[in-house]
């Protein structure tokens, strides 16, 4: 672990937000700020691949003092900046904490990357992984370290589900199955109940962090139930594709596939 001298009795909760491009990470952060900025002190670090677009978006959203939103450049390696070499992000987090001390929460937004990118516990205390219904209902089933073991999995943009032909309840059920019961939240920024569930999840985590009850977990670089490669393998050999293979994990069969309300498990 890098040195994190505890010069203050309390260090902010550092929360990472990861997930593929376009799933709504910036929007989720704006939603969190809107829901919480009046009661807790927040700072935001964004990681774009080669712009500060996300920082600009958040500043223009007007949900936080623009000085509390910083962009970190990742040299075209967004996954490196949150996992293998967190130097620039850690420096930005520490600077933010020092400048606006005491902060309750620092959100670190990963540059959109693929399903295998997760935060190192050297950088964040907890992480949210964000998928969206428009990315396809089957993504949650494919798994990956973020999907399987992030502290919270968000299935975002549920309001779009009817337009993209995705069964949200099924997608959430698949995700819960891949996560073996860890929390999954179906979110839409226009659905107040889901935003309230997100807010209460975060406040619960913050309380656990303050009590010293929260232990940062490393989702790890690979998930145990990762089927996407098997999938590609079958295709690359031009054999008849056996779809049953995708479903061979027992959890997929065991799960009741009942509709799950927003915020279940959170």
């Amino acid at each position: 672990m890098p040195d994190t001298p505890h010069t203050h009795p309390y260090r902010s909760l550092r929360l990472g937000v990861a997930g593929p491009v376009g799933t709504g990470k910036s929007s989720l952060i704006a939603t969190l700020c809107r829901a919480l900025a009046a009661e807790i002190e927040i700072g935001v670090i964004t990681n774009d691949i080669y712009t500060d677009e996300d920082a600009r978006f958040l500043r223009s959203a007007g949900v936080l003092d623009p000085a509390r939103i910083r962009a970190v450049e990742t040299g075209a390696c967004p996954h490196t900046a949150i996992r293998d070499d967190v130097t620039a992000n850690l420096a930005a987090v520490e600077e933010m904490e020092e400048e606006f001390s005491p902060l309750d929460l620092v959100l670190v937004e990963s540059g959109g990357d693929n399903l295998t990118a997760t935060f190192s516990p050297a950088l964040v205390d907890a992480q949210i992984f964000v998928l969206d219904v428009a990315g396809g209902g089957d993504v949650a089933r494919k798994g990956g370290p973020g999907i399987a073991r992030a502290d919270l999995l968000v299935v975002n943009k549920t309001d779009l589900a009817p337009y993209v032909g995705v069964d949200v309840a099924q997608m959430v059920a698949d995700a819960e199955s891949a996560r073996e019961g860890a929390p999954v939240l179906a979110l839409s920024r226009s659905d107040a109940a889901s935003v309230a569930a997100l807010r209460s999840w975060l406040l619960g985590l913050l309380a656990a962090h303050r009590d010293g009850a929260h232990e940062p977990q490393d989702p790890g670089p690979m998930a145990p139930h990762f089927h996407a490669e098997d999938d590609e393998h079958d295709h690359s050999h031009g054999e008849s594709h056996d779809h049953a293979h995708d479903y061979e994990h027992p959890h997929d069969h065991e799960h009741p596939h009942e509709p799950v309300p927003a915020g279940s498990g959170a």
Partner: peptide
């Protein structure tokens, strides 16, 4: 330099002690 100093504080703490502030 800051990044390298961070490494030094972890690997050679006897010569690069942790500090209050940055």
């Amino acid at each position: 330099g800051d990044g390298l100093a961070r490494l030094a504080r972890t690997v050679w703490p006897e010569a690069f002690p942790a500090r209050a502030g940055r």
